[in-house]
């Protein structure tokens, strides 16, 4: 999953970013409204974390401009707790609203729920045949066996599971699982897929040569 954090408060931005990275997200950062809007419209993010009081153009403006072209889920993260601000934020097209100060676990849970809902899943547990993934606990099981995965491997499985039955192209994987800092990773995906197949079994991930991968496909 790839998220964008638009927050001018450097310390806070980097904590949130590093926390999310540790839990397997690909995280991009923007320090002001202009940069945020540019990144949000030029990349396909799974979610955007948006502060309202940011320079250049404020959060409301970014949201309004973004909504003209994109449906990307947006979580507003702000110190503005007034009812008017909350209502305005949601009306401008935000999907959730989190007031500072907050706890990281809550931010993460809200982010997960946001992404899940946007992909049409209401529950945090997704099952394909005997393969089960709990996105809340970040656990993958095959039958009764819990399978330890690295953050990257987990993210890959999670992503394929969230798009179960659909073809996931290599570009999608690039776009959603790697952040902007990573470069020319063409065979990195292959390495991760190989590792996952080694742990989960070869039959789970189907390769469509020249197109991409899928789980639970026809």
């Amino acid at each position: 999953m790839r998220v964008l954090i638009i927050e001018d408060e450097g310390d806070l931005r980097s904590i949130v970013a590093s926390t999310l990275r540790e839990t397997g997200y690909a995280v991009d950062e923007a320090v002001n409204g202009d940069e945020g809007l540019f990144k949000a419209t030029s990349n396909d993010y799974d979610a955007i974390i948006l502060d309202l009081m940011i320079p250049k153009q404020d959060g409301f403006m970014v949201l309004a401009n973004l909504r003209k072209t994109h449906k990307t889920p947006v979580l507003i993260m702000t110190a503005r707790e007034g009812l008017n601000d909350r209502v305005r934020g949601l009306d401008y097209g935000a999907d959730d609203y989190l007031i500072k100060p907050f706890e990281l676990v809550e931010l993460q849970a809200r982010l997960r729920a946001l992404i899940r809902r946007s992909l049409g899943h209401a529950e945090s547990v997704i099952q394909v045949k005997d393969l089960l993934i709990d996105t809340a606990a970040r656990v993958v099981r095959r039958g009764d066996q819990s399978i330890p995965l690295t953050a990257m491997e987990y993210s890959l499985v999670e992503y394929l599971m969230l798009y179960r039955g659909e073809l996931v192209t290599r570009t999608m994987i690039y776009d959603h699982l790697f952040d902007e800092t990573e470069d020319s990773l063409s065979n990195l995906i292959d390495v991760h897929i190989y590792n996952v197949r080694k742990k989960l079994g070869k039959d789970i991930i189907i390769t469509r040569r020249g197109q991409g991968y899928m789980i639970d496909g026809p």
Binding site: D11, T19, E22, A79, E81, E103
Partner: peptide, 25 residues
């Protein structure tokens, strides 16, 4: 008052999240 609490929220959020993050592992 709202401004004051708002101004206090951001550093508070930093302290909270930073501590949480540092202690998470």
């Amino acid at each position: 008052t709202a401004d004051a609490s708002h101004e206090l929220r951001t550093p508070l959020a930093i302290i909270l999240t930073q501590s949480e993050h540092a202690l998470s592992r």
